[in-house]
Design a binder for these strands. Structure first.
Lengths: 192, 192, 192, 192
DNA sequence: TATGAATGAGACTTCATTCAT
DNA sequence: TATGAATGAAGTCTCATTCAT
């Protein structure tokens, strides 16, 4: 009888927003952004189409929030103590956590990769993402330099490419990618 | 003037078909499959929409032919003498040609990568592609085994992942990817 | 504190209803009926959408009440002593009050004019309005006849048209309409 | 069998475009811009919704073209010899043609009036319209001055208001407005 | 009385595809 | 072979209205 409190409303909103984002990521990840319709998302989330627009201004806004939330996790992965310098221990930590994130958030990674392949979608978050990647590239290069590698820049590029390639192959080969063995290989290659 | 022979007509037809596919690949590659409309393609190819349907039964058929034609080139790259065995020389040849193909056909590679990220589109060519990749993976594994690598399977996976990663980074980073230096690094790593 | 009496409750209700109508008129007047959403009104009135429906059964009902309330004022303007006869003094009184009403209730007049231009909306109040206008037209015609005008009917039509035209131009030209000078002109024309 | 010529296509386009504009004006005029849906227009024009968008980029573009085409006629009405000066004969010509236009294009005038009452729609053509009106106002004022009127500016305003009022009453009172007698009255008032 | 989440019909718009010429 | 007008299904989004609390 008494109206819901502000807190109650907030909870409802938060829960439902998370639900929508989860469902949408799921579908965007498996079928792609354009192939997934708002109707699809609403149906799978078991809500009306209209309600979705109560939470997100547009389909574009929805994917932007999903991606940004993914980038947040990525940012945490990189340089956890935020001093801009990478130690050998941190590199290992990074590799291990990369694989954890990869496995836990497969759908996000699919979205992440397809993001780069579609100019219009990429534009939504490009700046932030490029900056994040650039900062990590710098840290890596410094690290390889300090370890005495011959061409630290190429080394960084290769390191990044390998991770991208592994990620791509993993999220792309339905289920039979031996991710654990590949992880060990990476650690052997870079942290022995 | 003598009427055109059947042969001539076929040539014209073939030319126009190639034109459409080139234009379509260009647009699919830069803007994405769903974002590119049949109208866009027809306009850029300077033909009518109707004529396009004279050559391709549907948009899906069009992309399928484009991808298959790309896969043809890929297939030629792999095991050129088709004996199912890879020699050291052939591996080097493969790497070098991979980079040539990568640079010449950037747009195709973008399409190729996005292919894997969209289940519905992938379905169109999945079988052939998976078979091609599997056959190459086998050849590679045999090769690494013959070279005495400890874990040839992982080695193959890594090799594939690296190429994918490099390709992905190249087609994705607009222009500043030092592809030549990366190629040298690959050759140093695998063909020294 | 003593509980509020029934009377008090009714007063509060009446106040809130008036508030909603004022806000709605404001928005309908400046943005138009269809362009203004219930949400807009609720937000500006600082109440919930639900509460608005506690006072008005529908958006249509809301505008109908607003218009009827406006027509009430109009009716008061016309023939204040309700004897159906217009004297020279009353005509002057009418003109002067018309201008006062025009200035005070610009937003209502905008709504009033647009009312006539939209068949579906007009239907809501058409009868009452047509009757009111007809009755005034009759009074005017009688008046002009009694004053010896040659064609009292046309005279009435022109008089009405002039007022409408002035009103229309006033509410329509943002701010620079010299309403006072026009009023003087009208008085000179009709009440010299 | 042979494809249609360019000319044929142009004719089709022109005819159909005119049809759509006529139907749309009809509906916008009687029911209002927002109340009239694209479906309504397509149904009445006996075409598909999609085709409408082959001719107009948006509903807004459609109304803009309709209004601009109306303003074209208006512009022709004003100062036919385009010397910026109004003679007594031209004023009479103007009045008479105003009434002709009013009768012939009732629906446009309804749209024209409602245009001024809705800020967002007005914005589409505001500049052009304001300029046109301003230029006519100037000509009128000069004219009344040359004729020795006491307050030419007010005289112009009144003249414009009367025409607006007449037009408004005419397009608004379904059928019983004695437009001919009112015209005579106007001529008597201004061109005697 | 009061809230705002939730619904669903319907609006505008796009686009692959067809077809008369 | 070649054109582009025409269709219709489906997509994104809005909004009056309802209802549990």
């Amino acid at each position: 009888m008494a109206p819901r409190t502000k807190k109650q409303f907030e909870n409802i909103r938060e829960e439902k927003k998370k639900l929508i984002m989860t469902v949408a990521l799921e579908l965007f990840g498996s079928d792609g952004y354009h192939t997934t319709s708002i109707s699809d998302i609403a149906r799978k989330a078991d809500i009306s189409k209209g309600l979705l627009y109560n939470y997100f201004d547009s389909k574009e806004e929805l994917i932007r929030e999903i991606i940004n939330s993914g980038i947040d996790k990525l940012a945490k992965l990189i340089d956890p103590n935020r001093d801009g310098v990478l130690t050998k221990g941190e590199l290992r930590y990074f590799i291990e956590n990369f694989f954890i994130l990869l496995i836990e958030e497969q759908k996000f990674w699919k979205l992440y990769f397809s993001l780069f392949l579609q100019a219009p979608v990429l534009a939504l978050v490009e700046d932030r993402l490029r900056r994040l990647i650039a900062s990590y590239f710098l840290m890596l290069t410094n690290y390889f330099e300090s370890q005495g590698y011959e061409d630290p820049q190429i080394e960084s590029l290769m390191f990044g490419a390998i991770l991208d390639g592994i990620g791509f192959n993993f999220v792309t080969s339905l289920s039979d990618f031996p991710v654990d063995r590949v992880k060990e290989k990476m650690i052997k290659m870079y942290c022995k």
